[in-house]
Nucleic acid binder design. Structure first.
Lengths: 360, 360
DNA sequence: TTGAAAGCGCTAACAG
DNA sequence: CTGTTAGCGCTTTCAA
């Protein structure tokens, strides 16, 4: 192992002081152009590599943001992380990543570890059962910016970037109603989570607006995985409580159901059961019929959240002005929601309905 | 902003020396059980949070590994990162992530930045045109372990975890031959990359073994994205050079082609054109017919690469014994490759053919 | 079992 | 424009 060369080594070799070397390396204006060149040349020649651990300690700035999500490999999150990384790279920030597996205790530990690493800011999509952010107090108390994205809970001191969940679910539901559904159900996840509460509200709002009956037994709560969705639809069919439309809160459950119906029943999507999802997974445009779904603009959401975070890192003054950005959604209309007897089938095309932005 | 409490503060409050506090906090045996308890209690009471920047500088160990991939959101990589994160978390390591967008210059910068951050090890899936690793010299010279995964190039001083690419492509090709394909083509990416060279070799080996003619015009090189695959199949059809089987090096191209054929031609998969892919994207089991594909066990590959890296971080002695681990693949047989006139169609089921492990 | 002292490599007043 | 000085907060000899 080669001995690492430090600014002191460079200083000695050039017969100047290490502080001058430091200035030269940092391109400070307070150093002679001539000296600067000599330092830079020597640094390159001897392969000097700055030690950021030291510099970070000294400046108490790590140039690192932490990203904590439930599941890294989930399509939505990996795309969001993509956006986050791009935004961070642009500003020369590092990204450290961890996943909670939706386990609150793990989230607590990770977040504490990130604090000990003195990250400059935190991007968090909390576990579904995170009801409050006392584990974030250490960040807030130390004025380290935090941005919640996608999933969130209300905390007066944290920035939030989230989808217009209520409106997105509302418009998916309304879309199904307009396409002739009379007996809709909502398939959702843990209703402790604000996003699912919002989506439920949107579902409800659309029913009520259409003068349709809403009751709690139209709402089914399951773990949001294909196998549970399949078990659910099997049960529903067995009990003969077949709806003519299902508003799902994610694509993988919707896809699981479509696949099950296709392979195991004579029920047809959309004519017998219309269906919508959330996320626009790649598979959703490939299945036949295509799955009508809400595009959450995951990449943009990630990038926006990261930019918001970086901005509050660099402009501490606006730290206090907490804000919530509500990202608009797009309803991607495909075959799974257009009942053919209405003569509305648009072939294999995806029709994109942009939604308006709503605050709150 | 609250003033951060340091070990010196704790020391002062307890009338002991900061070195004792440090020992207590690190659960050193060289501190009285009684003192240790007092320190720990006080630390908790006043909300002491260790500053890892300082500790890292002192110990020159960052407890961080760097992960560099071409595209974070690509299904294969996000799953691999999932596995990496899990392995790292188990060992209490942090993961810092960056993506190169397959741009070598960006890769160079990122890797250098990670060195300056003094990561303890690097997990890299290099750009397709990375032919040598001189940008990794700084790691090698300083004996910081590096593991290449999935993508790789031969370097006598770097560990590699990779798929048995040649064999995987060989068995996909042989599978198509066994299912009646007589006129096979290979659709691949940048042939500078070792993985694609290997897959091409597998394709070739299978043809030759079957006594079929191999020539270079059976091999088509495109950017590996659906839109390019579609442009390619359009062109091929126009020129009337229709093959009866296509061995693709990834699923997204295969899926693009299947979708195009289904929507724009009367050609049927698999009867007119059989097709195989690589990666087992979620969509591949949802499309009809299902896409026969090579499962690369991305999660396990990531986890294995991370464990190998962590192992060489912790046991420096085996740093010199470079090794290459070849991960076995599984051919997932679905409808896209089973021509029905042979009466072999197995319905919607996926048949999993495990492959053997091959060295080298 | 504890303390004193030194220093990881860098930056940032403050002087000159 | 450059040098001096003093740490950032921690760990780690060495000595007691």
């Amino acid at each position: 192992m080669k001995k690492k060369v430090t600014i002191h080594d460079l200083a000695r070799m050039l017969n100047i002081d290490s502080s001058t070397v430091s200035r030269a390396l940092n391109d400070s204006p307070r150093v002679g152009i001539e000296t600067k060149k000599r330092v830079l040349d020597l640094a390159k020649e001897v392969g000097y590599q700055r030690n950021l651990l030291a510099s970070n300690l000294r400046t108490s700035k790590s140039m690192t943001i932490g990203v904590v999500v439930p599941f890294i490999s989930r399509h939505f999150f990996s795309e969001a992380i993509d956006g986050i990384e791009q935004a961070a790279y642009e500003k020369n920030y590092r990204v450290i990543i961890a996943q909670t597996n939706d386990d609150f205790e793990k989230e607590r530990k990770i977040i504490n570890g990130m604090y000990m690493n003195r990250i400059d800011g935190l991007l968090l999509s909390p576990t579904l059962n995170t009801q409050s952010g006392t584990h974030l107090d250490v960040f807030i108390d130390n004025e380290i910016p935090v941005v919640l994205f996608d999933r969130y809970y209300d905390n007066a001191r944290i920035n939030i970037v989230r989808l217009e969940d209520r409106y997105a679910a509302y418009s998916a539901t309304r879309h199904l109603i307009e396409n002739g559904c009379l007996d809709l159900v909502h398939l959702t996840g843990n209703l402790d989570a604000a996003i699912y509460q919002q989506r439920l509200q949107g579902f409800k709002d659309a029913l009520i607006e259409a003068g349709m009956e809403f009751s709690k037994d139209r709402v089914y709560t399951i773990p949001l995985l294909p196998e549970h969705a399949v078990a659910w639809i099997e049960k529903i069919l067995k009990e003969n409580k077949i709806p003519d439309g299902i508003v799902c809160v994610n694509d993988v459950t919707a896809l699981g159901i479509m696949k099950y119906l296709d392979e195991n029943t004579s029920l047809k999507v959309p004519d017998d059961i219309a269906i919508t999802g959330f996320s626009n997974e790649p598979a959703s445009s490939i299945i036949k019929p295509g799955l009508t779904t809400v595009d959450q603009h995951s990449f943009e959401m990630g990038r926006m959240a990261a930019r918001m975070l970086l901005n509050s890192i660099e402009n501490k003054e606006d730290f206090l002005s907490r804000q919530t950005v509500v990202v608009k959604s797009s309803l991607l209309v495909r075959g799974s929601s257009i009942k053919s007897e209405l003569g509305l089938h648009k072939g294999g095309k995806t029709i994109r309905q942009e939604q308006g932005t709503i605050k709150g």
